[in-house]
Design a protein around this nucleic acid. Structure first.
Lengths: 127, 127
DNA sequence: CTGAATCCCTATAGATACTG
DNA sequence: CAGTATCTATAGGGATTCAG
């Protein structure tokens, strides 16, 4: 049966859980934003850009829960909280930055294809 | 300025669009499911598993729109529709299967971390 | 019988505004 | 500054319907 990719990759239900965690827009951006080392809440928000405080807080908590990063709160004033990738989280750097590079390199092709598709759909003559 | 990863990766807004398309649970699973070659609607649904017909149809249309796959409807009875990755879609295979492999290999660690976290949160004594 | 569009409904992502 | 409360929009699921 030649052991097709999708069979070993998609069949086992438990691994779907972690794929869902990892194949996620914000997860990818946050891991990339932490690739250079620990950063605090506000810095991550600035680097990622366009993410709301709630969504960032929620996502960081989930990532901490799944052991991808650690949260360290310093008892200072003003408060300071630092997030850092764990060893497990570091293993995600490569695949996710690869995905990020793909997005950079192919964004143009995607947009061209999208325009062409929308053109076709809008134009009633060219069926 | 040492050109940190997150700066070139996250700053440019347009590439965020394509990252969002690609860093997505269903996109990843569908691309993986099509990695071995073209497949029809029902086959994809079976391989992916746990996806509703509506969501699969919606996602396939979006992926076609963005030039990642082609849709070919054969005028037969019963109807047959085949989906196949484009050249652009094929370039996604490597990064996404890499992510899939990550999910397989590290699912255990994720689940252990998650259990430990939930234990801590549930237990009122161990603060 | 297959592919998929449509309606309806719930769950959750996400934005805005506020608090310690 | 970091995080929560509250509200809204959208993604996603299920059943039904329809066309080829």
């Amino acid at each position: 049966m030649s052991d097709p990719v999708w069979n070993v990759m998609l069949a086992s239900c438990p691994s779907r859980t972690s794929l869902a965690r990892v194949a996620n827009k914000w997860t990818a951006m946050i891991v990339i934003a932490l690739s250079d080392g620990p950063a605090r809440f506000g810095a991550i928000r600035d680097r990622v850009g366009g993410i709301s405080g709630k969504v960032l807080a929620d996502t960081l908590r989930d990532l901490e829960r799944d052991g991808l990063l650690t949260r360290t709160a310093y008892d200072e004033m003003p408060p300071r909280v630092e997030y850092e990738l764990t060893l497990l989280g570091l293993t995600l750097r490569e695949p996710l930055t690869a995905l990020g590079r793909w997005a950079e390199h192919h964004i143009e092709e995607v947009l061209v294809a999208r325009d062409a598709y929308d053109q076709r759909s809008a134009d009633p003559v060219t069926s």
